[in-house]
């Protein structure tokens, strides 16, 4: 019910509380008011023009590693 994409922050406009984010090579202007803080280079989850969460990259990597290892186990 809530189409969202993980996108990388490439530019922050603190004044307007927006950021330019990149998803697979295309850039979108999104609001960042729903985030406590965010830096360029981080990944955010984008829904309806707003970044709704800072993505936990560590977790992202760990999870996929977990599943990969499982196939080898």
């Amino acid at each position: 019910m809530c189409l969202s994409m993980p996108a990388k922050v490439i530019e922050i406009d603190e004044q307007r509380r927006t950021a330019k984010v990149d998803y697979l090579g295309s850039q979108l202007q999104v609001g960042i008011e729903l985030l406590e803080k965010v830096e360029t280079g981080q990944f955010v989850l984008v829904h309806a023009g707003e970044a709704i969460q800072l993505i936990n990259e560590e977790e992202a990597i760990q999870s996929i590693r977990y599943w990969k290892e499982l196939t080898q186990g």
Binding site: L3, M5, A7, Y23, L24, G25, S26, L28, V46
Partner: peptide, 13 residues
């Protein structure tokens, strides 16, 4: 399909 084509389209659903 180019990745950036896929990306743009996914962003818009």
């Amino acid at each position: 399909i180019l990745p950036e084509v896929r990306g743009t389209l996914e962003l818009m659903g």
